[in-house]
């Protein structure tokens, strides 16, 4: 593995990608399908955090909410309104699904900002599954709700007739590129930010530039906090937009 390859270096050493290595949590064997790895651990931690916020935090069912309950209600209202506004009133049946995606991504992103943590959403395997899940849901829902009429999504009836076939090709390509951009956007953002922090942190080993380096790490960390939320938001709102296409395919 990579950490062995870096083992015999001294002085200024950059290993910005080591934080993304998936390794078994117990022992040092190969990573099999059911091995409990650091990815498993941090995913489990997201479940715990979500349960703490949304289940334990609301156990009082208070009419006047406690602080944690109002955060939970805020999250609920935020996503519910987004689903209703962007995807339409008939999409509220998908609300638990979209809430699941949002809560998972936002907690993975924020937990990944803890020092020494592992960011599950920085892995393309994870985001690709999330994006494929959205893509398949949207496609299946589109065909189930609209039948063949769902293909009308690709036939831009507002355009002049000679242009329509060309636009249809473009629309089809853009439709199939969606899961790719959807997943790479999230994984890329998370990975790049964390790697940049690590690179700046590596420079802190040199005494002369360490103050600059520490300041830069602080600044980028602040930026990353913002990015963590924005990427979760973007992923969720795009899911809603795609879902709207599935439910109302006419342009």
């Amino acid at each position: 593995m990579a950490d062995k390859a870096h083992g015999d270096e001294g002085g200024l050493a950059f290993h910005p990608m080591d934080q993304f290595i998936v390794k078994p949590l117990f022992g040092d064997g190969p990573v099999g399908m059911f091995t409990i790895t650091n990815a498993t651990f941090w995913m489990a931690l997201t479940i715990v955090c979500i349960a703490l916020l949304l289940v334990v935090g609301t156990r009082g069912r208070a009419l006047i909410p406690s602080r944690i309950q109002s955060v939970a209600e805020l999250a609920y209202g935020f996503i519910y309104k987004m689903v209703e506004d962007v995807a339409g009133k008939d999409a509220v049946g998908f609300f638990p699904y979209i809430m699941t995606l949002f809560m998972f991504i936002v907690f993975s992103n924020f937990l990944g900002l803890l020092p020494l943590s592992f960011t599950t959403t920085s892995h393309i395997a994870v985001t690709a599954i999330l994006a494929m899940a959205v893509f398949l849901t949207v496609t299946i829902v589109g065909f189930v709700k609209n039948g063949v009429g769902f293909l009308g999504l690709f036939w831009v009836s507002a355009a002049p007739l000679p242009l329509r076939p060309i636009l249809a090709v473009i629309e089809v390509i853009s439709y199939f590129v969606r899961p790719v951009s959807h997943s790479i956007r999230l994984a890329g953002n998370m990975m790049a930010g964390h790697a940049v922090i690590k690179v700046f942190a590596g420079f802190a080993a040199i005494a002369a530039i360490s103050p600059v380096s520490v300041l830069a790490v602080t600044a980028i960390y602040g930026l990353e906090v913002l990015v963590s939320f924005i990427q979760a938001y973007v992923f969720t709102i795009l899911t809603c937009v795609y879902l709207k296409d599935a439910l109302h395919p006419s342009h």
Binding site: V22, V31, G32, M33, F34, T35, T37, A39, T40, M43, A44, T46, I47, I50, A51, L54, V55, P96, Y97, M99, T100, L101, M103, F104, T120, H123, A125, V126, I129, L130, A133
Partner: peptide
């Protein structure tokens, strides 16, 4: 490994929610 645990995680979160 990641895909398996991700699906487990998502299912658990979905059920809890």
């Amino acid at each position: 490994n990641q895909i398996f645990w991700l699906i487990v995680t998502l299912v658990v979160i979905y059920l809890v929610l």
